[in-house]
């Protein structure tokens, strides 16, 4: 080894870097450690269903069965009134369940992602932010697998709804990814300090799902909100109003989504991501001490 070689110099302690620098370092961490993210995702996926008989088939069965439950439930509840249960209701519901499963599993997995790696966090210096990122990325694979039964369903039962707009699904998914990532990063960090996050998230997610136009359409909401303006506010603030409507536009109605809404949501999501990355990076130095 000669002295002309570059030597990495690492320095710890002394002063707190400013917010912008923290956010940037968080984002560089995510990018420069993408290999680690990939391995974590692979590990997660190879584990998933490794001890079940059907294995990865569950990725396809899960959303289908969930769809079945909701279809039965809503049909029994409203007795097939066409003003409530929309036309081609199974497809209508499926278009919302699929992205929701990605969102809820990404949040739930992220919450545990940091605390589950307690041992290595205390032994190796690495950017912890890759852990919630990996949990969120894993969900994409499930989401992609869920597109298989979706397309099959359309081809078999809803031929007339088959449209070119299906290829726009990834664009909507990008917006959802940006939104999910910020929340996932935040939730994973807070759970290190308060282990209640998982319990809270379970109920919040459930409530959130029912408050979003998943089982019903936005048009039905506007009917209700004519008498109750506060309903309109709740739906206006809910990112999943925009997301579900967009998914449904490209999958179910065969028309392009409302780009303006998606664009606004994307910008807000990136801002949220920046804030959550900042919070994560601020809390990160304490992880090894608190865990």
């Amino acid at each position: 080894m000669t002295t002309t070689l570059d030597t990495p110099v690492a320095s710890y302690g002394g002063g707190r870097p400013n917010a912008l620098r923290l956010i940037l370092s968080g984002l560089t961490d995510i990018w420069s450690r993408r290999r680690l993210t990939r391995y974590l995702v692979q590990a997660d996926l190879s584990k998933h269903g490794a001890d079940t008989i059907l294995g990865n088939v569950w990725w396809i069965l899960d959303p289908l069965l969930q769809m079945g439950v909701y279809v039965v439930f809503v049909t029994l509840l409203v007795g097939g009134r066409s003003d409530v249960a929309n036309e081609d209701y199974p497809l209508f519901v499926f278009a919302a369940i699929l992205p929701w499963k990605w969102f809820s599993s990404a949040i739930n997995d992220s919450i545990l992602s940091v605390v589950a790696r307690e041992r290595i966090i205390k032994q190796v210096h690495f950017p912890k932010i890759v852990l919630p990122v990996a949990a969120t990325v894993s969900g994409i694979v499930n989401f992609a697998f869920g597109l298989i039964p979706l397309v099959v369903m359309i081809l078999l039962f809803y031929r007339d709804r088959l449209a070119w707009t299906l290829v726009l699904i990834p664009l909507v998914a990008i917006v959802q990814f940006a939104f999910t990532l910020g929340l996932a990063i935040l939730a994973s960090a807070i759970n290190v300090f308060f282990r209640d996050v998982g319990n809270v998230a379970r109920h919040v997610l459930r409530l959130w799902f029912y408050l979003s136009p998943a089982l019903y359409s936005a048009a039905q909401v506007s009917k209700v909100s004519a008498n109750h303006p506060e309903v309109a506010v709740v739906f206006g603030l809910n990112p999943f109003s925009i997301l579900f409507e967009a998914y449904r536009a490209v999958i179910y109605e065969g028309r392009p989504p409302s780009w303006a809404g998606l664009l606004v949501l994307l910008v807000l999501s990136l801002a949220l991501l920046a804030v959550c990355t900042y919070v994560f990076k601020r809390l990160e130095p304490s992880f090894a001490k608190v865990l």
Binding site: T7, P8, V9, A10, S11, Y12, G13, G14, R117, R119, I120, I121, K122, Q123, V124, H125, P285, S286, A288, K289
Partner: peptide, 26 residues
Amino acid sequence: AGIIEPSEGRVTMRGKVSSLLTLGAG
């Protein structure tokens, strides 16, 4: 090893650092 941030003072490490801490962590 950079795992814990010092609350006070400063550490500077020059060179590639490797730690053989508890084996098989992670």
